[in-house]
């Protein structure tokens, strides 16, 4: 090996260690841009929230909008749809959790926990069946709404009620309520 015999301390000299440490820190920091570039870019982040004007949606009507690439059902429920949903006992539900992104998982799937206070006629749900990902039917006037008056997934026969909760069929969970807020009486921002 190197015959610089007595000078081993050389390697552990402070200046050598300091220089190597500085260089190493820079090399590590340089890694971050390579990793961060894979995160959603600014144009995708700009579409992270969507604002929706609810004024064209009359009672009994429903619209489907796209949020973060996913379909979102917005239904303006009739009073009887609301009261039917409220009358259901939690014990009768296949999935007792509210599945509301704004609430903890332990929150129960009451109609109140799936809507906003004072705006309970509005139901906002992610329109993806929790079984295997098909888009349930029930948004249009002529659609089958299943046995519980909500939505019906034609792929494997899941039935959702008027609060979007799974009542019958293979789907394990209620339709997800995305995070949203009312900016005004007729405008919501999702995400």
């Amino acid at each position: 090996m190197a015959s610089h015999t007595a000078e081993e301390p050389n390697r552990r000299d402070f200046i050598v260690i300091a220089a190597q440490a500085f260089a190493a820190v820079g090399a590590a920091a340089a890694l971050w841009p390579f990793i961060d570039q894979m995160n959603p870019d600014a144009s995708t982040q700009a579409l992270a929230s969507t604002e929706v004007d609810l004024s064209p949606v009359k009672p009994g009507q429903a619209i489907t909008i796209v949020w973060r690439g996913k379909p979102v059902f917005i239904r303006n429920r009739m009073p009887e749809e609301v009261s039917t949903a409220k009358a259901v006992k939690i014990a009768d539900l296949k999935d007792p959790s509210a599945r509301n992104d704004a609430l903890p998982e332990s929150a129960k799937a009451t109609d109140e926990n799936r809507t906003k206070a004072g705006k309970e006629n509005w139901l906002v749900l992610v329109g993806i069946c929790t079984h295997l990902g098909c888009i349930p039917k029930g948004q249009s006037m002529g659609d089958a709404k299943g046995d519980y008056g909500g939505w019906f997934c034609p792929c494997h026969g899941s039935h959702y009620d008027t609060a979007g909760r799974i009542r019958q069929g293979p789907a394990p969970r209620n339709l997800e309520v995305p995070p949203y807020e009312f900016l005004s009486a007729t405008q919501i921002k999702i995400g």
């Binding site: 971050w32 841009p33 570039q37 995160n39 870019d41 600014a42 995708t44």
Partner: peptide, 13 residues
């Protein structure tokens, strides 16, 4: 241009 403007650190890379 999207790399220059929108991708995180795209301008740098």
């Amino acid at each position: 241009e999207a790399i220059r403007r929108d991708v995180n650190y795209g301008w740098l890379l």
